[in-house]
Amino acid sequence: MSVLSVRDLSKAFGGVHAAREVTFDVAKGEFLALIGPNGAGKSTTFNMINGQLKPDSGDILLEGASIAGAAPRTIWRRGVGRTFQIAATFGSMTVVENVQMALISHHRETYSLWRAAGEHHRARALELLGYVGMQDAADRACRELAYGDVKRVELAIALANDPKLLLMDEPTAGMAPRERNDLIALVKRLVLDRGISVLFTEHSMDVVFAFADRIIVLARGRLIAEGNAKTIREHPKVQEVYFGTGKTFEKVTS
């Protein structure tokens, strides 16, 4: 059984069809890239899967059970983690406190009055920070960190609910080439070590072609191609929608 099954997913805004009968699966432990030119429907599809948008039609199955139209909080509690294009952390809080807050929410202790928040799950928070290489910065304020390190903290937060599926929206946006390759290599190791499935959107083709197990391509709301890096590079429809000339993808190096 697939971890995630998207079936005939559609969404329109007025007369604009942002997603049209999009269908794909994400297997257990798969690192799947969702790409497409601007306006292709990537964000709309992503936000329907995560619950920010309700689909007009179609279904979204997490391990066989429908989550279509469920609230983001419900979907998170079902085991779906999420990172955002613009990293979302509390700058005035320390690195470890940011992760502790996610753990408190995961364990439904938000309204617990028995202990101060800083006493909850610190050991587990430090363990998660260790996974992403940020344990040494645990007691620094997030606002003091470089942007690449904030992205790592956000990843630790996304792992707080022990996700079966991790959704990553433009995880390397705003990062230098070496930083983005290091971050995606880290995520790939987590996929292999912990069996987490990952669906990510990304504009950096060097990252996509180097790390994705499989790639799906959207254009004007429709899925037009899927396959490995070689298949996508050589696909005539993909070349057309990205370049309009039939020009092939060129490998990008850092």
Score class of each variant (00 low, 15 high):
221 G>Q: 05
253 T>P: 05
238 V>T: 02
21 E>R: 03
64 G>F: 13
250 E>L: 13
240 E>W: 09
169 D>A: 04
48 M>C: 10
28 K>A: 09
35 I>P: 03
81 G>R: 06
95 V>F: 05
215 I>F: 13
151 K>W: 11
226 E>D: 12
241 V>T: 02
76 W>V: 11
173 A>C: 13
27 A>I: 04
235 H>T: 05
86 I>A: 09
7 R>D: 13
123 A>C: 08
196 I>Q: 02
2 S>D: 14
222 R>Q: 14
19 A>M: 03
94 T>V: 04
106 H>V: 10
248 T>E: 11
234 E>H: 14
16 V>G: 04
242 Y>Q: 08
222 R>P: 08
132 V>H: 06
91 G>I: 08
137 A>F: 14
14 G>E: 10
42 K>T: 00
43 S>C: 10
245 T>N: 04
166 L>K: 01
16 V>H: 02
95 V>C: 10
179 E>Y: 11
47 N>L: 12
105 S>M: 10
54 K>V: 14
207 V>L: 09
108 R>V: 12
55 P>Y: 11
15 G>L: 08
161 N>C: 13
81 G>L: 10
37 P>V: 01
201 T>F: 10
57 S>A: 15
37 P>G: 02
21 E>N: 11
238 V>E: 00
134 M>D: 05
226 E>N: 04
223 L>C: 06
169 D>R: 01
217 V>S: 07
139 D>F: 14
26 V>A: 11
227 G>F: 06
188 K>S: 08
